[in-house]
Design a protein around this nucleic acid. Structure first.
Lengths: 244, 244
DNA sequence: GTTTATCCGATTGTCGACAATATTAGGCAT
DNA sequence: ATGCCTAATATTGTCGACAATCGGATAAAC
């Protein structure tokens, strides 16, 4: 298939449609972010082949932007790149998912200690607002929205802790296990419990006690790990993926 | 400077000079590994500009291999890539070095728990052999060789633990802080103490006790962090870098 | 003397073309 | 039908050329 047959040359020159509002524009950043989003949102199956030409057409980018994006995603662990054989969406095994979660647990524990030492009154206000919003969504029976807020809640803690290194690693790990994440959320009765745990976390933070905060976080995350284990056991026989 | 002036075209075609003995050959792997090695071994100063054409000539690779390598290194955190302004060796601040070390500590603690549960008699034999070699080098007054063995020792533990995710992250962190590492080693009297700590670690592993192993590792690494802090304080006034 | 404007060389970004390699499809014998 | 060889196609890898952009130097203006 000759790629340059019918499509217009996609314009490489000035006037990019998205003028990069943020300052952190890396090499091939637009394509990278788009592609990454497609992957973590489950639009591609694991092991699905990622053909450069197709992606270029799909994302409206040049082939070498795609190429750079794929290299980056490979390094990040979201795709796997084999020489002369292209890229595939990386399949994270059950075992690896547990490994990831395990690392995530200890990183979050470490991070919340920092947060406990640095949290301000304004931070606590924000956290409590997050909490009440979560309660709201839960009452509305909106587990999907709850899951989003959950992620936001944890990210807020990362921000408070202001630990760049750990934050980066956590973001990376989270993106790798996200397909498992969305399954865990669906565990019946999990959300109410999760909410309580979150409340305890905020309380511990409010008292600015690192040990208590870490304990609350550990409690919360051990629940998550357990749920993940459960999800793996259950769905081993019936693996499902997000609808396209 | 016209790059293609005097140098021979470096041959793109068949018969790669290094036939890739290992299976994990990613995109632009040769250039990536070489360049990475140059950086972590301190051949480039922090903030030094990395000009693609120069690197291509230096490493005997094409410009786009270099380009891919730079993207990978950027994602890895060893270089920083700014749009239209090329790549520079990333400077890790003192604070960041401490952050990295902090994460490293908890990851190593986690990993050694796994190791304690999986260690075999053969593993213990290897570890003890490492130990005696370290003692040897120390007696010879060879701190540089000792440092190498030190790294090998820790890597051996990662191998025993068989925790791919944590191992990957640790390798990454280590490469980022390596320039600080080499300074820490030089602390007078540090090596003997380090050796003792290593011996305690092996003992704890031999008893297959996760808690004791973790404690021994924590003790060891807290020392390392302290030394790093000391090195930072001392050398703040007189920053030195590896000779080229 | 300091600031501002303009130019020039150096460097990065992108494309198109082609070579090298993998993957598929079809034909043939068993 | 099944397996194997060969040809056709699809896809990745690499280069060279050129456009876009940056940084510094020089010149002009105040």
């Amino acid at each position: 298939m000759k790629t340059s047959a019918g499509a217009p040359p996609v314009r490489q020159t000035t006037a990019g449609p998205a003028p990069k509002p943020d300052g952190t524009a890396e090499r091939g950043a637009e394509a990278y972010l788009k592609l990454r989003n497609e992957i973590v949102s489950g639009r591609f199956h694991p092991n699905e082949r990622l053909v450069e030409a197709d992606l270029a057409r799909l994302l409206g980018a040049g082939r070498n932007a795609i190429r750079a994006a794929l290299v980056r995603l490979d390094q990040e662990g979201l795709v796997v790149l084999e020489p002369n054989r292209g890229a595939r969406v990386r399949l994270v095994s059950d075992r690896e998912a547990l490994e990831i979660e395990e690392v995530r647990v200890i990183l979050e524990q470490m991070i919340i200690r920092h947060a406990a030492l640095r949290v301000t009154a304004a931070d606590l206000r924000d956290l409590r607002r997050s909490l009440s919003e979560m309660r709201e969504r839960l009452r509305q029976g909106n587990p999907l929205g709850y899951s989003e807020l959950n992620a936001e809640f944890h990210q807020r803690i990362w921000t408070i802790a202001d630990h760049g290194t750990a934050g980066r690693l956590l973001a990376n790990l989270k993106s790798q296990s996200i397909r498992f994440q969305f399954r865990t959320i669906l565990r019946p009765g999990r959300t109410e419990r999760s909410l309580q745990e979150h409340e305890q976390i905020v309380e511990a933070l409010a008292s600015r006690d690192p040990d208590a905060s870490e304990a609350a976080m550990r409690q919360h995350l051990s629940q998550v790990v357990q749920t993940l284990q459960w999800a793996i056991d259950v769905q081993r026989h019936q693996p499902i993926w997000l609808p396209r």
